[in-house]
Computed example of a mutant assay.
Amino acid sequence: MGEHQGGKFSRTRGQIYVEIGIRASMERLWTLSQDPDLHPRWDLRFSRIVPRDGDDGGPVSFRYEFRLPFHTISGTGTSLGHRRRADGQATSVLKFTTRDALSPIGPGSGYWRYIPTAEGVRFITGYNYQPGMGTLGKLLDGRVIRPALGWATAISFDRLRLWAERDLDPGDSRNRWIIDAAARSGGFLASALLLRRALTGPFAGAAAAVGVAAAMASCFLPAHRTVPRAGRCLRLAPDERAGRAPSALVALPSPGGGGLPAGEE
């Protein structure tokens, strides 16, 4: 349940898949991930989630927001969670859509799996969507938007892990990531200045050596264990079931007819 460097396959073409091992109880992880007030605190993909209606044990409709500097993207969704299963697992499925022309993400669907292990819980997500923003969105999707979403999902999962395992507030883990990123950027800048001096000024050998050392430290010095990292997540499904949506997703109502179908178990 440490860092993951690879996987075997992703069943659905284009699907974003993220998995992380979390040393916490199922109950704690379920609460932190399913509570609409707690979820946006660790998940970079949402600024706000507002439940609208739904019966206990049935589908729940919700409105979501993602705040940008000069615009707030909003949309609607439908979700359904299964907390109790005979095999000890839990699942949650959702479909979502938006009419916002500036949203890079159009109608889509996804799932979460909570799989108990001897050390805690395997927490898994897989989701797919139709690109938004018309032709521009389609051009940017594969090279920019999906990689950015995959990274945002992975680092969000590690923030959740730190919250569940160490009780480290997601705001604090975000600040630690910013400090780490700033320190590494400063190291690269110092390296560039030193290497430039090595070419134009005195003490060329010493400046070059220190510049190379600064660059290598910025690249390879491990982040502190309390700094969230996307690299701690698995990004490809290691087995067929993990990369396949629960069958409940097929029957889940779409919010405004926008959801994408997914494979059944």
Score class of each variant (00 low, 15 high):
134 G>T: 12
141 D>N: 15
177 W>E: 07
115 I>Q: 09
138 K>T: 15
123 F>Y: 11
175 N>V: 05
139 L>F: 13
118 A>V: 03
181 A>I: 03
129 Y>M: 10
170 P>M: 14
161 R>N: 07
115 I>S: 08
150 G>A: 13
164 A>G: 11
118 A>D: 15
167 D>G: 07
150 G>S: 15
142 G>M: 14
116 P>E: 08
166 R>S: 09
130 Q>P: 00
140 L>I: 13
177 W>C: 03
141 D>P: 15
116 P>C: 11
157 F>V: 05
153 T>E: 08
127 Y>F: 14
132 G>H: 06
128 N>T: 14
176 R>F: 03
118 A>W: 04
167 D>K: 09
142 G>L: 15
130 Q>S: 04
172 D>E: 13
144 V>N: 06
166 R>K: 15
176 R>V: 03
122 R>F: 12
133 M>W: 07
134 G>M: 11
151 W>C: 11
170 P>V: 14
120 G>N: 11
169 D>F: 08
153 T>V: 15
175 N>K: 13
177 W>F: 07
142 G>S: 14
124 I>T: 03
117 T>W: 03
169 D>R: 10
159 R>V: 09
152 A>K: 00
159 R>N: 07
175 N>S: 10
135 T>S: 13
147 P>C: 15
155 I>G: 00
182 A>T: 09
120 G>W: 05
168 L>Y: 03
182 A>L: 09
133 M>K: 09
175 N>W: 10
142 G>Y: 14
165 E>D: 09
150 G>K: 11
117 T>G: 08
164 A>H: 05
139 L>H: 02
181 A>F: 10
116 P>G: 06
120 G>Q: 04
178 I>E: 13
177 W>T: 04
172 D>R: 10
181 A>S: 06
158 D>A: 05
181 A>P: 00
116 P>W: 08
169 D>P: 05
128 N>S: 13
155 I>E: 01
115 I>H: 00
119 E>S: 14
164 A>S: 08
158 D>E: 08
165 E>T: 03
123 F>I: 03
180 D>L: 00
126 G>Y: 02
120 G>P: 02
179 I>N: 01
115 I>G: 00
165 E>A: 04
140 L>A: 15
173 S>D: 01
164 A>R: 04
152 A>Y: 01
145 I>A: 11
119 E>T: 12
162 L>P: 02
161 R>L: 00
171 G>K: 12
167 D>M: 01
181 A>G: 00
121 V>D: 01
165 E>M: 03
151 W>V: 13
182 A>C: 04
151 W>H: 14
134 G>E: 08
151 W>D: 10
115 I>D: 03
148 A>P: 02
165 E>Y: 01
162 L>Q: 01
164 A>L: 04
171 G>F: 04
167 D>Q: 12
145 I>S: 08
157 F>L: 06
179 I>F: 05
118 A>Q: 08
119 E>I: 09
143 R>V: 13
117 T>V: 12
132 G>E: 03
151 W>T: 11
142 G>T: 15
125 T>S: 04
160 L>A: 01
117 T>P: 00
176 R>Q: 08
144 V>G: 12
178 I>K: 12
166 R>E: 10
152 A>V: 07
144 V>Y: 06
117 T>R: 11
126 G>R: 01
182 A>I: 01
129 Y>L: 13
181 A>H: 06
121 V>F: 04
180 D>Q: 05
171 G>Q: 13
145 I>K: 07
